[in-house]
């Protein structure tokens, strides 16, 4: 048994990878999602232009262990999102 949440997107509570058209890739727990935004909790961000680790290596590491969250709450503009996938399925 556990607590469940109604009225949220089907990915609510699921750790997702949010890829964007820019250099940022977000990994966090999806709180909700609609046509305008993706709301994430406990989020880490990979910035391709700033990180010494490639996006591929970052996601490989994230898929194995998870991520250390740098943001408790973050909203991503849906118009910039190119893909949302479950981290557990990478």
């Amino acid at each position: 048994m556990g607590t469940f949440h109604t009225g949220k997107h089907e990915l609510h509570g699921i750790t997702v990878v949010v890829e964007t058209e820019g250099e940022e890739t977000f990994v966090g727990r999806c709180d909700d999602m609609d046509d305008e935004k993706v709301i994430l909790l406990d989020v880490d961000v990979h910035r391709a232009g700033e990180s010494e680790v490639s996006k591929e290596d970052y996601l490989r590491q994230a898929a194995q262990w998870g991520v250390f969250a740098k943001h408790r709450h973050l909203v991503v503009d849906r118009s910039k999102v190119t893909a949302v996938n479950r981290l557990g399925e990478l």
Partner: peptide, 9 residues
Amino acid sequence: NSVCGCAAG
């Protein structure tokens, strides 16, 4: 352990 039903269930 955790309360959240999304995973702990």
